[in-house]
């Protein structure tokens, strides 16, 4: 009788919430491609309009930063959104990228424009290693271990003379006339943002991505269904590290120094999480939209309240409010209401 019950399974169990049907954009909604093309062209062409932009360097710096956040929150989304494994220590990868590129520049004079990709690979390596250990747990314990990972790196960089200790290392500036100084960084970040969003899109539409979503829904069931969960999770962790690492390499160069507190701070991880969640985690367009939104809110509150701690309060409040009232984020909520414009629908 005992074996028999096991085979029968629980009776009257609550029906599984049916995963919402993934909507495909209807045929005529092809205009989303035109929107995308227009955005790409505009972003590529922006630096050409120098005479028409009054504070040229400011605009390009702003643009580069937004693009960096787009890249980072989109990358975070691969693990946090698709696979449902929240990392609160993702800025560790930015730091690894920043330090690899920065150290190579400081000691060997090799330009981060070349070595940033190496920084990304170093981040991937760390992602594999950390994932191998931390992904033995799930849920809260995993999240906690990502925080611990971040603090380990903060401690190490703080204490290694070779890496400049807590004061960090100054980096020689890029030798370009002041008025064009921001252009290379802008294009580098644009490239990174493309790379990251493209990666995110490809993952979302792959078998791998489907596996990650299955893990996010119900890991045990995914495993039973034949998804190699451990391999997928670790791969997702490593993959989500890559563009964050590359962005870190370029970012350190752009501010001309590397320092532990620039990268290995939970505030940066918090931003990635916040952006992905407000935009809609687990969607392709969500983190992109979220990055732009949060960055705009930050700039706005800086202007209104000045550079005070009040910005932090606003961010925390937004996170709490979004979680309580729109846990699906902008894209997810609009989709649920059937109001998602086609140009935001890339899932």
């Amino acid at each position: 009788m005992i074996e028999d019950r096991a085979a029968m399974g629980p009776e009257d169990s609550a029906p599984e919430p049916t995963p919402e049907e993934v909507q495909r954009p209807p045929g005529p909604a092809r205009y989303r491609w035109y929107v995308l093309a227009a955005v790409v062209v505009a972003l590529l062409a922006l630096p050409l309009f120098r005479p028409m932009i009054s504070s040229y360097n400011y605009v390009l710096t702003l643009g580069a930063l937004i693009l960096m956040w787009v890249a980072m929150s989109s990358s975070w989304n691969i693990l946090g959104g698709y696979a449902g494994y929240i990392s609160l220590g993702h800025s560790v990868f930015m730091g690894v990228g920043g330090y690899v590129a920065g150290v190579l520049l400081y000691y060997h004079g090799i330009s981060p424009f070349l070595t940033a990709l190496l920084g990304g690979l170093a981040a991937v390596a760390l992602g594999f290693l950390a994932g191998f250990i931390t992904l033995r747990t799930r849920g809260p314990a995993f999240i906690i271990s990502t925080i611990a990972l971040l603090f380990m790196f903060l401690l190490m960089t703080d204490n290694f003379e070779y890496l400049g200790g807590a004061a960090g290392l100054p980096l020689p500036p890029l030798e370009v006339p002041q008025e064009w100084l921001r252009v290379p960084f802008y294009y580098a970040m644009l490239f990174i943002a493309f790379g990251a969003v493209w990666t995110s899109y490809r993952v979302a539409h792959s078998k791998f991505g489907m596996g990650l979503r299955a893990i996010s829904e119900d890991e045990t069931k995914a495993e039973v269904a034949g998804v190699p969960t451990r391999l997928y999770k670790i791969s997702a962790f490593a993959m989500s590290a890559f563009w964050v690492g590359v962005a870190g390499g370029i970012y350190g160069y752009s501010i001309a120094f590397i320092r532990p507190t620039v990268f290995f701070t939970i505030a940066i991880s918090a931003q990635m999480v916040l952006m992905a969640i407000i935009g809609g985690k687990g969607t392709v367009a969500g983190p992109v939209l979220g990055a732009v939104l949060i960055y705009a809110i930050n700039e706005f509150s800086l202007v209104v309240f000045g550079a005070t701690e009040f910005n932090i309060v606003i961010q925390g409040t937004i996170l709490v409010a979004v979680l309580l009232f729109f846990p699906l984020g902008v894209v997810g909520t609009l989709r649920k209401m059937n109001r998602l414009p086609a140009f935001l629908n890339w899932d």
Partner: peptide, 26 residues
């Protein structure tokens, strides 16, 4: 009773922590 309650609490308390930190700093 929300789905993924554990994950929600982590994110929610993360937000609360940021708020408290900001307020104390302010």
């Amino acid at each position: 009773g929300s789905a993924k309650f554990g994950e929600m609490t982590v994110l929610l308390t993360f937000g609360i922590a940021i708020m408290v930190e900001g307020l104390l700093g302010f």
